[in-house]
């Protein structure tokens, strides 16, 4: 268990309850945030769950950026160095208090 701090496109900030092992895309979706289309359901076939990692808790590490994820993010006009696909980051307690922003819609 833990929490995620999420900034949505309207600038509002949400504290989301997080569950171990669940991809962050699903945590955002299950919190009732409707801004993530997540059209492919998390199978790494699109880039509609794009987020920016604003802050990583001390000592925490994200899983590495995969080749497909890198390529899919390249299709976004809004890619930044801190871009990730949230379906590719399973939550773990070390990530508690990670801060994210939902990227603009492509």
């Amino acid at each position: 268990m833990g929490t995620i701090t999420l900034k949505t496109r309207d600038g509002s900030v949400h504290e989301i309850e997080a569950r171990e092992g669940v991809p962050i895309m699903e945590l955002i979706r299950d919190a009732g945030i409707d801004e993530l289309a997540a059209m492919c359901g998390g199978c790494l076939s699109c880039a509609t769950c794009h987020v920016y990692i604003d802050h990583l808790p001390e000592g925490a590490e994200l899983p590495g950026l995969g080749r497909d994820e890198d390529d899919l993010l390249d299709g976004s006009d809004w890619r930044r160095p801190e871009s990730r696909l949230s379906c590719q980051i399973p939550f773990s307690s070390s990530l508690s208090r990670i801060a994210l922003t939902i990227a603009p819609e492509d």
């Binding site: 790494l44 390529d71 899919l72 390249d74 299709g75």
Partner: peptide, 10 residues
């Protein structure tokens, strides 16, 4: 070939 998928769209 996700790279082609993304770039072919353009």
């Amino acid at each position: 070939a996700a790279k082609d998928f993304v770039q072919a769209r353009k």
